[in-house]
Design a protein around this nucleic acid. Structure first.
Lengths: 254, 254
DNA sequence: CGACGCGTTGAGTAGCCTCAACGACAGTGG
DNA sequence: CCACTGTCGTTGAGGCTACTCAACGCGTCG
């Protein structure tokens, strides 16, 4: 497992992929490291109050956000990795409308409105970056619409694994084509709109075909090219461009 | 059919639901009315170049954005109504990744980067509003994930019709519980991940049950409460709050 | 050790899909 | 004006994918 740079916040690592941070920006992102909230594996993350009051930045660990329907059906909305911002797009809404659960031990940073406003006012480039992240997020959601609306079990699983791999690479948490995979097959099923049984069958089939390998909570992608082809995969993180972002009030810092 | 206020742009109408526009803001939104591009019914809207160069604001008419997979499977990503902004979240991306088709005769306004920057610089409140719209958009997408991942044919159709009704009401284009519906059943099917046959069956079933009525391109919702209950419908547009938005460089106008 | 969660596998089922035929309708051209 | 054509919606027959239900093995944890 590749390690993140010592002491650097995952969000900073992520941002560093797209822009070279200056000292102020680096410090601002670093300050988010203060007093992370620790969450044990497999526990519900309780959030209170208005949406915007409870923005999280994942420092370490995996989380799952999901909705549950009255009859028990569950839909996983997103898997959250280090560097992810949770709840950003809930800001204009009056309350949270989904559950949050930790898959592994986690540490989360709470962001208050004040923090957000701080970033927005001080570093327009970071602001642009944040919004770009959100837009890419939206893109990955529309990609998932295609998956859930039009793909069969096998393709759904392939797409999910690929997008997981790609996202983990962004935060240097994939070891080539091997990565941790703490989801249960129930979790995966609820993410891609299947049952655990179908997921099991799909995974077994892929393994038998030599496309992937599983061992003790890890997954290895053996034939990435084939998988990408099979689902017409697009890596949305490859080419984010934040230069368009217009929030640049007269270059103050240089 | 209820009419929009004479000459007012649909985006202004929409914005007016959430905030009281001052003269400058109203003028800025109104200026978008200049030189709309007219699109005939059932034609492909061609877009060129980088994503951000081709932002559209729908002035009138319905459009469909969708992706097509190599084998011909189609997934409708969104139905666009007057007031909708198309392509906003493509701005940080290098190119468009979906198709756009008109369902009715349309008129579209092109927004260039300059326009966007203009709005962003001059009216922070409108900026906040735009971002809030985008966030709500994201929310409706996650709602659709639940639909495509976990609902049966009947529920999918119900949810789609409800969200259509709610959005049309926002722009005063629903006459109580009656609204135009120019989609074919193929379109609807590709939107909710079914086939036209299943859609036909679902619609017939609902009509037989007395839940809705169809006649000549219009749909009437007869039992809205039942439908909302059946799919745990949440109206995301009900309570957008833009007060949180931090882009307020020292109240210049008052 | 027992209890529990997780993954696997099998048998049977149900919902949706595919294929197909047909009627209604609008647009087109003679 | 009327065939001709293509699109759209409906309905039926049959098939397939994924679901439900269930049993079992395995590992972990108390």
């Amino acid at each position: 497992m590749v390690r993140t740079k010592r002491g650097e916040s995952p969000l900073a690592t992520l941002a560093g992929k797209y822009l070279t941070l200056n000292e102020d920006e680096r410090e601002l992102l670093g300050s988010l490291n203060d007093q992370p909230r620790r969450i044990a594996r497999n526990s519900e993350v309780v959030r209170e109050g208005r949406a915007a009051d409870n923005l999280f930045v994942v420092q370490s660990g995996w989380l799952l956000s999901y909705t549950i329907m009255p009859d028990g059906r569950r839909q996983v909305l997103q898997v959250h990795f280090p560097g992810d911002i949770i709840g950003f797009c809930d800001m204009p809404l009056p309350s949270f409308t989904y559950e949050l659960k930790s898959l592994t031990d986690c540490s989360l940073c709470m962001l208050t409105q004040t923090h957000v406003q701080d970033i927005f006012h001080k570093t327009p480039r970071l602001t642009g970056f944040l919004f770009s992240l959100m837009m890419v997020d939206q893109k990955t959601h529309t990609d998932r619409l295609r998956v859930l609306g039009r793909m069969n079990a096998r393709e759904r699983v392939i797409h999910f694994l690929l997008s997981t791999l790609v996202r983990l690479r962004m935060i240097d948490q994939a070891d080539g084509d091997i990565f941790d995979f703490p989801l249960t097959q129930f979790d995966l099923a609820d993410a891609v709109g299947l049952t655990n049984v179908s997921v099991s069958n799909a995974l077994s089939g892929l393994q038998e075909q030599g496309v992937l390998k599983r061992s003790s909570g890890k997954i290895q992608i053996l034939d990435e090219a084939y998988m990408r082809e099979a689902v017409s995969f697009i890596n949305r993180f490859e080419s984010i461009d934040i230069s368009w972002f217009p929030y640049m009030p007269a270059e103050k810092r240089k």
